[in-house]
């Protein structure tokens, strides 16, 4: 064996130096909710699946209906929306959980339930950490994850990173963009609230400050099933309520802890995993990824030290030869 033991150890140490001591860099919860962060509380138990949120979202975000297949079948375009998931033309989506004969609302067995998919506006968003060019930014005040198409290079790393598969890419466009919910930023700028919340007929999508929404959610999951509760409509600040019978809530607020927390919170009467929501650890993947990366490149000491060694080695070997 020509490779000497000493050299082998050198390779090893170089590798260990660059790859870093991964076990020590687990970063834990790094980012916390801003005091003014806004979000949505989606209560699946009172959602009637009317899709008013979808229609309003499309209308106020200038999104065309998705009707390619229907158009093929009927020759009619632009009347009906038939998207089956979030897409580059659909920023929120009501999905149906069905079991057995699907006869009972909010029942896991032989029942059905609705869930609304949309950007979760994570407290520590993986997409923001992933973006190489800062095209996705988390607003310091509102916590909304915003997109800047002038920075975006379209690498789609955000899509790989997002645990909820939220950012979407316009595959059918020659000049594509990443598309995601920005919590109706443009409507909020004019004092409005997100369209999905404003047009929800039951208050299932409720807008408000995340801290207030969390409080509301905690109150709801403690309610007795079958009792009547005055559900706030549209926005927590509006004071408009609609009395409804309380469903048997799962004693859990989805989004309170997931991946470091989200600003879009969900309540349900059936287990969240059945609604297609992923089980995530309490820290974001971004915290792990950045922890390892920053562990390796802390102050660029390791790469510079390595470069120093390499320069010395390369100089020694090449000074007498012609390369």
């Amino acid at each position: 064996m020509n490779l000497e033991r000493r050299d082998f150890l050198k390779v090893l140490s170089a590798g260990a130096l660059t790859a870093g001591n991964v076990t020590s860099v687990f970063a834990g919860i790094r980012k916390t909710l801003s005091a003014d962060a806004v979000g949505i509380l989606y209560d699946g138990t009172i959602c009637i699946g009317c899709k008013a949120c979808e229609a309003a979202c499309k209308q106020y975000n200038d999104m065309p209906p998705e009707s390619a297949n229907l158009e093929k079948a009927t020759g009619v375009d632009g009347i009906w929306d038939e998207s089956y998931d979030l897409s580059e033309k659909t920023l929120n989506k009501i999905k149906l959980y069905e079991h057995g004969d699907a006869s009972t609302h909010n029942s896991e067995e032989n029942g059905f339930a609705f869930v609304k998919k949309a950007c979760m506006h994570c407290v520590d968003p993986d997409c923001v950490s992933a973006c190489p060019v800062t095209a996705l930014v988390k607003n310091d005040a509102t916590g909304i994850v915003e997109y800047d198409k002038d920075a975006c290079i379209g690498c789609r790393y955000c899509m790989v990173a997002c645990p909820y598969n939220v950012p979407k890419f316009e595959y059918a466009q020659a000049i594509p963009e990443i598309v995601k919910c920005e919590l109706c930023n443009h409507r909020q700028a004019e004092g409005g609230i997100p369209a999905c919340c404003e047009f929800c007929p039951t208050g299932a999508s409720l807008f408000g400050k995340v801290t207030d929404l969390l409080e509301e959610a905690r109150k709801r999951i403690k309610l007795v099933a079958g009792s009547t509760y005055e559900y706030p409509m549209r926005s927590l600040d509006e004071g408009d309520v609609s009395p409804k019978t309380v469903a048997p809530y799962i004693n859990y607020i989805y989004g309170e802890k997931e991946g470091g927390g989200t600003q879009y919170l969900l309540l349900s009467a059936i287990p969240f995993t059945k609604l297609g929501l992923p089980e995530l650890s309490a820290t974001s993947s971004a915290s792990k990824s950045e922890g390892i990366q920053h562990g390796i490149y802390k102050g660029m000491i390791a790469p510079i030290a390595l470069l120093g060694g390499l320069l010395y080695g390369a100089y020694q070997t090449t000074k007498n030869s012609e390369g």
Binding site: G49, Y84, D85, K93, L96, K274
Partner: peptide
């Protein structure tokens, strides 16, 4: 507002795992 009650939700809904 009425309680919406669907005997069997229509097939036009997007399924969780479509």
């Amino acid at each position: 507002q009425s309680a919406v009650f669907t005997d069997t939700p229509p097939a036009s809904y997007a399924q969780i795992s479509g």
